[in-house]
């Protein structure tokens, strides 16, 4: 579903992502882990065609993300890290707006499903600007999955969500993957990755330091936290 080859992004003299190669297979839940500023968001923005790479390439669902960014965004679902829904649409109107852009049918059913699953139907007629941060995150989650994409790319999926909703979202992501969907998400919260990911990549200073199944760590008796800290501190000291 995702094939990144020597992907590089420079911002002036700063290399945010440095010759990164990896792949994510269909039906996989892949977590990209890294400290703040390690290149996670830049990676997602390149994979979704929001910014072009300086060099290298990324194929997403068979499309070149740099050459056909609109095509990629039409196929996948994306939750950006910071973007908030439009201030003066209600939650329901925003979902209908996205459905209009994506030319979806059965909009009532699609909206109701997400209001029910994420338990914010009581906020459907509230302006987005008046929603709490957690509810806005639910709404962004709903818009990303409204068209039932086969691949979702999510920047910090559980940010601002309470523990109950975090559980709901984690369960949904697992069931989504079991149903044949694919998820690529970034986070710096290691427990989430350890709990739900099939494979992880650890990124630091724009380079992938490790990429492999979470099961390998569990099999070797190591905790992700100590593995991550050793790897990142070792890289920082190198």
């Amino acid at each position: 579903m995702i094939e990144a080859t020597e992907l590089t992004k420079d911002y002036g003299n700063v290399t945010a992502v440095n010759r990164v190669s990896f792949s994510v297979a269909e039906g996989e839940l892949f977590g990209l882990l890294g400290p703040n500023g390690s290149g996670k968001t830049t990676m997602i923005r390149m994979l979704t065609g929001q910014i072009p790479p300086t060099s290298g390439s990324a194929r997403v669902m068979g499309l070149d993300a740099a050459k056909d960014p609109i095509g990629v965004r039409g196929l996948v679902g994306i939750i950006p890290e910071q973007e908030t829904p439009p201030s003066f649409l209600t939650a329901e109107e925003y979902l209908r707006f996205v459905a209009g852009i994506r030319n979806l049918d059965s909009v009532d059913e699609r909206c109701d499903r997400w209001f029910d699953l994420l338990e914010f139907g009581d906020k459907r007629d509230v302006l987005c600007k008046d929603l709490s941060r957690g509810t806005r995150q639910k709404l962004m989650f709903a818009q990303a999955f409204l068209h039932e994409p086969r691949l979702a790319l999510i920047d910090e999926p559980l940010i601002n969500l309470d523990p109950i909703m975090q559980r709901t979202v984690k369960d949904f992501l697992r069931s989504y993957v079991q149903g044949g969907g694919t998820v690529f998400f970034s986070t710096h919260i290691l427990e989430i990755a350890e709990e739900i990911c099939d494979r992880i990549g650890i990124i630091h200073n724009g380079r992938i330091l490790h990429c492999g199944p979470v099961g390998d760590l569990v099999g070797s008796g190591r905790h992700l936290e100590s593995f991550f800290l050793d790897l990142v501190r070792g890289d920082a000291g190198a």
Binding site: Q50, R73, E83, V98
Partner: peptide, 8 residues
């Protein structure tokens, strides 16, 4: 930026 993650 509000549309950058949508096919627009």
């Amino acid at each position: 930026t509000s549309y950058a993650f949508l096919p627009v």
